[in-house]
Design a protein around this nucleic acid. Structure first.
Lengths: 232, 232
DNA sequence: CGCTTATTTGAAGCCCCTCAAGCAATGTGG
DNA sequence: CCACATTGCTTGAGGGGCTTCAAATAAGCG
């Protein structure tokens, strides 16, 4: 249920990369123009192919960006959490959203309508500068990934996916990082069947790199995975 | 050999997407700040990992963006031709260039130093708007490709690569589109060995979809390749 | 306890890679 | 103009990695 965003910015807002360098009053007016939305896990923000009408910023929770390929398989592109901007690529070009955004963990987001955000960027040039940097980083990331998928073995891809998950949505514990995901989730992130994922995880369990349970795993030795991910 | 760019903008400059909406005087001052460079085929604009100091715009010719993966294999990301912007992602973030830019066909480019281009964008907001759109489109493209490589067969990947080549650097002829490339080029673009590429092309020759010769091919039936590319 | 869902494991097969030859087109020097 | 090297391409045989299909096991949940 959309409602006006709170006018008193929470302290972390000023640290969000999209708002870097924005003065307190400017930040206030940008936030005043936003709408706050709360969604439960499983709900959908927008679908692939929808007209890109709004730009979102994740305040809390986790949102999954996924894509359905021509052959019908689902591919998870990225998990977005606090501070991440969703929709920037599509909104600035008036393309339809190229991905589906669905909520993984109950999330709060703020959003702006597309024309409104253009006006805000005109009023606050730092905002446009930051948007440019943000989109640039996103591109950088995908270019890097395109390079990675090439010639990588299944094990390397899974190692990278697990490390990315651990970084983006992992919980630090005494003896490792706990990550919640199913074998199917990893399969969707890597484009590998969950049979192969299972075999790889079984192998890692034998080598005591991880402890893998039902719908979760504990990464015991992230460094070893890092070595695996670029071939050692 | 760098030298000042000509002050009288050639007519097509005003149609370049980076300069859309820019007034004639604004365009003139932006071009006045640029430096023109001419390079022969085989020369290199910058290397992957170099500090991103300049932003380039291709005036004529073809520039190849390629990446060397961790395992040492070269991967061609994209061919850039007239109107395309090179380096925008890295320059706006002060990252090192993520790719190597080398000249495929004798090229003329104009370029700006990074701080200078920021000033130009401040003076001419349309320029920043266009940059934002340009980077967005680039991201869109790579996201789409990430989705495509997934689960695609070698034949589908090659079909897509050939179609992209035909669009970006093909010459229309009476009975098809002529494309200049070696099997190795296609291999670098798709991440497939040139043995497999050769087998696929031989098959296409048998089915009369293409005529393939040494260092070139004639695409007789682009539509059939399009069908192949998303699995039919 | 039974039902559903997540995971494991095995066996067969296919696609693509690797390695090894050989061929065909294009130069190059005598 | 021909021998010969070079470069690009083709084709075959063998093998490995991942998928597919089938079945069994384990974990949660009413």
């Amino acid at each position: 249920m959309p409602r006006p965003a709170r006018l008193t910015p929470p302290p972390e807002m000023s640290e969000t990369s999209l708002f870097q360098g924005l003065g307190a009053t400017a930040l206030k007016s940008v936030l005043a123009a936003a709408v706050e939305t709360s969604l439960r896990a499983g709900e959908t923000l927008f679908h692939q192919g929808d007209e890109a009408s709004r730009l979102y910023l994740v305040v809390s929770g986790v949102v999954k960006l996924s894509q359905v390929a021509a052959n019908g398989t689902q591919h998870v592109l990225r998990l977005m959490s606090a501070g991440d901007v969703i929709g920037c690529v599509a909104v600035f070009n008036r393309f339809p959203y190229p991905v589906t955004a669905s909520v993984e963990e109950d999330a709060t987001l703020i959003s702006w309508a597309e024309p409104q955000f253009w006006h805000l960027m005109e009023d606050h040039p730092e905002l446009m500068t930051n948007a440019l940097r943000t989109v640039g980083q996103r591109t950088q990331e995908f270019v890097a990934r395109l390079g990675e998928v090439n010639g990588a073995t299944a094990e390397q891809k899974v190692a990278r996916a697990v490390l990315r998950l651990a970084r983006q949505a992992g919980i630090k514990e005494a003896d490792g990082v706990r990550v919640g995901m199913t074998r199917q989730d990893l399969a969707d992130m890597t484009g590998i069947t969950y049979f192969t994922i299972s075999r790889i995880l079984s192998d890692w369990k034998r080598r005591e790199l991880v402890e893998a349970g039902r719908r979760e795993m504990l990464v015991r030795n992230p460094h070893a995975l890092l070595l695996l991910s670029d071939g050692s």
